[in-house]
Amino acid sequence: MIQLQQVHRIFEVGDQKVHALDDVSLDIKRGEYIALMGPSGSGKSTLLNIVGLLDRPTSGKYVLDGQNVTALSDQSQAEMRRDKIGFVFQFFHLVPRLNASENIALPMVLAGVPVAERKARVSRILDAVGLTDRAHHRPDQLSGGQRQRVAIARATVMEPAAILADEPTGNLDSASGKDVLDILEALNDNNITLIVVTHDLDIAKRARRRLHMVDGCIDSDTTTGERK
């Protein structure tokens, strides 16, 4: 489903060129559960951004669902992001002036989903993440774990093919971190591809496939049969 072929990403910082991704090739199938690890600056966030169509490779090819997306226009890339990919961020990135329901509905608002269907989907998904009673709370009235659950609900409301989570538990205590992972893994059980960037080895161990990056290259790619 996700294919990267000889992808390079070079940033220019002043006069220097930084090779954030150096000839990365990667093949991810639908429904995989991947932990992306590596030290700071190893390029794992850059990889995630390119997979999520937030960033474009300097060279190389990216095929998503059989479609070469490297050459697509800004508009079409935005549509791909909207329909196929859900993002979960370390710092939640909820819109502070919107309540939980409105935050969750935001991707559907952008996609032009009719109001009645929006409401139905929001209430279904609030129920799934256990936040029905928090529907009209604004983010500053929610705990960290609740906020991240709202963010996950928002990421899944468009029924994406893949969820990209950048340190989803990095800002949470361990109990709510575990809740969040449970929800993400439940989604993965429904055949949604899940890619989690993490520093935490315990979290990485839960994934079936682990990618380890150093200096813009994938230096190890291990797959274990069962999720632990």
């Binding site: 935005a78 990135h93 991707p107 996609a111």
Partner: peptide, 16 residues
């Protein structure tokens, strides 16, 4: 700024 980034991640094009 971060809200704009978020809107883009959620599928808003530059035009939008």
């Amino acid at each position: 700024t971060s809200e704009i980034g978020l809107l883009k991640a959620l599928g808003a094009s530059g035009r939008r």
